[in-house]
């Protein structure tokens, strides 16, 4: 599609959409959001770019093949699940690492977050695989 308005807005929107998708991903543990919906927003951003600039440009923007994203996401998800087994708990049991930072702040790293990142990547990878398949007809 060759539309100046679409191209210009896309360039503005894609940054906002990708940032928003990360925001949704991180927000997801306690509030509505999460890897799935974040991944969909990110995929929508790339889809928008694909519509505005074409499949080749979108491939360049992505740098990696969508299927590799799919693989990386699956790997992250399974590894997050396996972490539960390290402590002899069932598969997929959440594991937590909590760091106390000065100023009464704390950083929580968890296998749940890793799982969500995996979901995010799988969703982006899967949606884009399908989109590219349709685009290349």
């Amino acid at each position: 599609m060759n539309s100046l308005i679409l191209r210009t807005t896309t360039q503005l929107m894609i940054t906002i959409l990708l940032l928003f998708s990360v925001f949704l991903l991180l927000r997801g543990h306690d509030l509505p959001g999460g890897g799935f919906i974040g991944g969909l927003v990110a995929a929508a951003a790339v889809a928008l770019y694909l519509i505005a600039f074409g499949a080749d440009a979108a491939t360049l923007l992505l740098r990696v093949r969508p299927r590799a994203l799919l693989g990386a996401g699956l790997l992250a998800g399974v590894l997050a699940g396996l972490m539960g087994m390290v402590t002899a708990e069932p598969f997929l049991t959440g594991q937590w690492l909590i760091f106390d930072l000065p100023g009464n702040a704390e950083v929580k790293l968890s296998s749940v977050l890793l799982f969500d990142v995996g979901v995010y990547l799988v969703v982006v990878g899967a949606v884009l695989t399908m989109l590219f398949a349709l685009e290349q007809g």
Binding site: F36, A126, M130, A133, L134, G137
Partner: peptide, 24 residues
């Protein structure tokens, strides 16, 4: 339902691509 939507979405996209290939 969310899971079912996701699965349904994937299946329908695949079917669409398949129909497209059949047409080609």
């Amino acid at each position: 339902v969310l899971t079912a939507i996701v699965i349904g979405f994937g299946l329908i996209v695949f079917t669409l691509v398949l129909v497209l290939r059949v047409y080609e």
